[in-house]
Design a binder for these strands. Structure first.
Length: 453
RNA sequence: GAGGGUGUAGCUCAGUGGUAGAGCUCCGGAUUGUGGCUCCGGCGGUCGUGGGUUCAAACCCCAUCACUCUCCCCA
């Protein structure tokens, strides 16, 4: 019989156990921090009704949606009425609209689940990946304070994750739109297209972007492009206070511009009051976010030492989340971490600590005639809350140690005739290469101390 | 959706017409209570698939599939 080649589809991340432990530690940290900031857990189904999912999308997103249908229905040639979610924001909108009467506003939820996109294969792009979202949804209105709280949570989280220095880049869509209007670019579509180009500044470089904007179909005037570039660069090499002052000095009276400037000023001020250090937050007028539903503050987080990873966490403010599902006005602000890509790239850069098995202790079988003791010790350690594995097969002692080493299990318990006769157990620390003798009745407490230490 | 590249052992890759290779991994051993290092041995491939040329094809030709990179878009 021909063997079938065992392989996963491209664009999914599958991990070995020690890697999975590291990944789960990361997710645990994210969950813990979100909860500390007062967000409540929500899960939604992987599949939604096609109608619900494909409301506002169209174009790019719709091309990437996986449809789902039972084989029975497909045989009847029915159109798929189910599709798999491509992000967590659309399901959130449906969730809030559906349960509006039962929720308490402002509603703050976190959601850590996988989403699905029919991406074409490319490094760091996944077809199945984790998003870790927080959002705050208001009824009718939502205080601007939350625009500061979201990055404050992200600041705390990334400090905790300990991937090195990072910067939360912030901008405001109203400020941008106001500036565009001031330049005479009034059309929202046109603004959007110019924004997308500007958003690529760090990737394509200033020269290329200027070139594109001067040429068809943009055909902007040289003077307009100069002003634009000048404006976009006005955050560079300045503190946020200096940037805000410089923007004010432009003396633009356009209405949206003024609103945007005030919003940005308040958010920056409140971030200071929330004890987020200045050098972790940067007003960056070049970031715009491609997504069209953002209407105010936008965020993008980058690791300073690894700019090539791109944004590892981004989001923003939207005026009305669930307009397709309810007549209620539900403004919100939120952010999303692409945990799969983040982890994958961190692992690639060698920044993930691998090798920590969740099993802490391996009980070896030095002498098969003492098996009863080994079983009892194993049971006692487990009862004491220590993750313990018994080397059931026994075998050559060298092999047993090698097993522990390769498995990433830090401590091995050794007890032969000698230890048995004198009532103690030898504990070997494979990380330090040291071993010590511990009386059997103190074993659980002393081991726990070693694990914690 | 547009344009490039690559398919040989589990992994990374040599091999351009004459019996299929290396390194790493994995398994076993180096005398009886001590892992990582070293040394020795072993397992493992219808050379992506189908057809063609040839006495002879991993290698040349045609087709096809898969993977991959850039652009686009995103986390």
């Amino acid at each position: 019989m021909d063997l079938i080649k065992p392989k996963t589809m491209p664009g999914v991340m599958e991990l070995l156990p020690l890697e999975q432990i590291a990944f789960q530690n990361m997710l645990d940290t994210i969950r813990r921090t979100y909860e500390r900031f007062g967000f409540l857990p929500v899960e939604t189904p992987v599949m939604e009704y096609t109608k619900v999912l494909l409301t506002k999308s169209g174009g790019e997103t719709e091309r990437q949606v996986y449809f789902a249908q039972s084989t029975g229905a497909l045989q009847q040639e029915r159109q798929p009425e189910l599709a798999m979610r491509f992000d967590l924001t659309v399901p959130l909108a449906r969730y809030v609209a559906e349960h509006e009467r039962k929720l308490i506003f402002p509603f703050r939820r976190y959601q850590i689940q996988r989403v699905y996109r029919g991406e074409s294969a490319q490094r760091g792009r996944f077809r199945e990946f984790y998003q870790c979202d927080i959002d705050v949804i208001g009824k009718d209105k939502l205080d601007l304070y939350y625009d500061a709280e979201i990055p404050a949570a992200i600041y705390t989280l990334f400090r905790e994750l300990d991937f090195g220095k990072f910067t939360i880049h912030m901008n405001n869509r109203k400020l941008l739109a106001g500036f565009f209007a001031h330049l005479g670019i009034e059309d929202a579509q046109q603004q959007m297209l110019v924004l997308r180009e500007v958003d690529k500044l760090d990737k394509r470089g200033r020269g290329k972007v200027v070139e594109t904007l001067l040429a068809e179909p943009f055909s902007l005037a040289q003077d307009t492009v100069d002003q634009l570039m000048n404006f976009v660069g006005s955050g560079e090499g300045r503190t946020n206070r200096e940037t805000l002052a410089a923007l004010r000095e432009l003396g633009i009276e356009q209405e949206q511009w003024l609103v945007g400037l005030n919003e940005l000023t308040q958010v920056i001020t409140q971030l200071e009051q929330l004890d987020v250090p200045e050098d972790y937050v940067n007003i960056n007028l070049a970031i715009a976010r491609g997504l069209d539903y953002y209407t105010g503050t936008v965020y993008e987080t980058l690791l300073d030492d690894h700019p090539k990873l791109g944004s590892v966490c981004s989001g923003g403010r939207y005026e009305n989340l669930a307009g397709y599902y309810t007549k209620s006005k539900l403004p919100g602000v939120g952010i999303s971490i692409g945990a799969t890509r983040l982890f994958f790239q961190l692992m690639d850069a060698g920044l993930v600590n691998l090798g920590q098995n969740s099993v802490k202790v391996l009980v070896t079988q030095m002498d098969p005639s003492l098996q009863e003791d080994y079983l009892q010790i194993t049971a006692a350690l487990r009862a004491g809350g220590i993750n313990t594995q018994l080397m059931v097969e026994g075998g050559k002692f060298q092999k047993q140690l090698k097993f522990a080493d390769r498995s990433g299990i830090r401590f091995t318990l050794i007890m032969g005739e000698k230890e048995k006769a004198e009532g103690y157990v030898t504990v070997k620390d494979l990380t330090k290469g040291e071993q010590l003798e511990i009386p059997r009745d103190q074993l659980v407490a002393r081991l726990q101390a070693l694990i914690d230490g």
